[in-house]
Design a protein around this nucleic acid. Structure first.
Length: 258
DNA sequence: ATGCCTTCGCCTCGAAGA
């Protein structure tokens, strides 16, 4: 079973790439972020025709999340319970039958913009609400995967130029503490379960030849509860997707599970 | 660097992303 996450930066623009990738990579579950589509405009039929069940939660212009699965999705949760948020950033659902059920949580964590922006305290409040919800969710679902665009580089290893990024949004201590608080719920950063080459990233700035110079960040993550981490045989970052014409600025990340 | 790209919508400029 392969489970993946990809910030598409507009599903309208990226749908042809997504369909090609679904056909070639054959992932079992895909979490999407930044679909930027209202629900009435979601390309449901195209994805059904590609062999996927879909659940989605979007809005105009910004945000928007979705889960695709080759098997049916049930117990769908839209947004973080008991957390008022107009921004469509969370969708969760369960795949698999009772003995092999996996809870899939798809998140598009706020960017925060800058430490002195109002969006930064919103990001930290949002992360606290996510952790509070997942503390019960992880107790209820032994097999849980938290996938998405976290907008956090957890460690200096995840940053092309740690000195330039020191203290900047995506790299602050408070954001990294929030990431570690998610890990402390009993989750494991799938990428770090394995030896990895240095300077491996999932996002590269569109500007200044960011991808060509590998000036990137690792901000898209798959956290796995212990039983899933035990099943994980590897993680792939689909860098080739960043080389296509008109790419997303993020590459898909795939966790391979036994 | 108030810059660089790319997206969307109040659409040919501004806001936001990261």
């Amino acid at each position: 079973m392969n489970i993946a996450t990809w910030n598409v930066n507009s599903l309208k623009v990226r749908l042809p790439q997504l369909l090609d990738w679904l056909n070639s990579a054959q992932p079992d579950v895909v979490c999407l972020q930044e679909t930027k589509l209202e629900d009435h405009a979601f390309p449901q039929q195209e994805l059904i025709d590609a062999g996927y069940h879909v659940v989605f939660c979007g809005q105009k212009t910004y945000n928007g999340v979705a889960i695709l699965s080759r098997t049916p999705l049930r117990d769908v949760q839209y947004g973080i319970p008991n957390f008022e948020d107009e921004q469509r950033r969370v969708i969760a659902a369960t795949v698999g039958d009772e003995s092999h059920a996996v809870r899939i949580v798809c998140v598009y964590i706020p960017n925060g913009q800058a430490v002195d922006s109002d969006k930064y305290p919103y990001k930290l409040r949002w992360l606290a609400a996510l952790k509070a919800w997942l503390s019960t969710e992880t107790q209820q679902h032994a097999k849980l995967a938290l996938l998405g665009d976290y907008n956090i580089a957890p460690d200096d290893r995840d940053v092309h130029d740690p000195i330039a990024w020191a203290g900047q949004v995506l790299c602050t201590d408070a954001e990294r503490d929030a990431f570690r608080a998610l890990v402390a719920l009993g989750l494991h950063d799938a990428f770090r379960l394995f030896e990895q080459p240095e300077k491996t990233f999932t996002w590269w700035d569109y500007r200044m030849l960011g991808f060509q110079k590998n000036r990137g960040l690792r901000i898209d993550h798959i956290l796995l509860s212990a039983p899933l981490a035990e099943q994980c045989t590897g993680v792939t970052i689909e860098r080739a997707m960043r080389k296509l014409e008109r790419p997303s600025d993020h590459a898909p990340v795939v966790a391979h599970l036994r």
